[in-house]
Design a protein around this nucleic acid. Sequence first.
DNA 1: CCAAATCCCATTGACCCCCATATGGTCCCA
DNA 2: TGGGACCATATGGGGGTCAATGGGATTTGG
Lengths: 146, 146
Amino acid sequence: MNRFLSHATNRIDAKGRVSVPSSFRGVLATLDIRELYCFQDFVFPAISAGGPELLDRFERQIAGEDPFSPQANEMSLLIHGGGVFMKLDQEGRLMVTDFIRDFTGITNEVTFVGRADHFQLWAPQVFQETQAAARQERRLRGLRPG
Amino acid sequence: MNRFLSHATNRIDAKGRVSVPSSFRGVLATLDIRELYCFQDFVFPAISAGGPELLDRFERQIAGEDPFSPQANEMSLLIHGGGVFMKLDQEGRLMVTDFIRDFTGITNEVTFVGRADHFQLWAPQVFQETQAAARQERRLRGLRPG
DNA sequence: CCAAATCCCATTGACCCCCATATGGTCCCA
DNA sequence: TGGGACCATATGGGGGTCAATGGGATTTGG
């Protein structure tokens, strides 16, 4: 599989590590991603993670603007100041640092959520509620599959 | 037959597996669908399942919008985070995971419901009631098939 | 020199391949 | 028309494999 799909919840162990779901690790291997670029999501209280080219994309977007514009400045504040590179250990586990905990509210468990070209780390409860709200709104707008 | 029709209820075994009705498997074979894209339905407490092109259709819909818009983000949360690929075992059975149980309320039995280009997994009781309610509403509005 | 991060190995349990059995329907023939 | 052979589907379960998890031992960095 070549994109991140579905969601799964894993436990954080006594050392503060959590296993990244095997299917996600498979995608990382397929895309030859060895290091994760993680940043505080722009919309949700979640950490988004993907390959380094994700950061490249953001930077190209900035480069297309006036480097002294408020937009470019703001964007850099988010993607540089709110981003970090992380690596998995050999069992495919990730350290859940305060960088992650503070922004997401994660404590004991992490819900991994696939987003096609990247995935996210959520506090389980928050994900449930946010997804339910999105579904509700979609229903009100009368949209359907197809 | 080239579309999913009718409904049937099958038992979940001790290992949490359930047989997909043979007629549905026949449709899958006809359409050359080897992997199921399953997602949490937008309207009903049911899991919808179809071929991978179902996801493609959703993604094309997203691609038509601003990728950073709240709508696109929300849609991705549902179809990527709320969707998963699943495969049948060689006997044509499906694992009933918590992903399915939590969203549908399914426990011992699954009602499979044909929806033309896809099919759905329901808790039997919920399906009965929802279908009865739909029939009732239709009657009140004085509408008839045809 | 201490605390934290990483390596390495063990355990547990879930999932999947494979084969066996049950159940119900259809067809054929006497 | 009734009985029985035959077949497809649904269901049950053994056992191997792999992912998630736990924790001791070693290294790294401040």
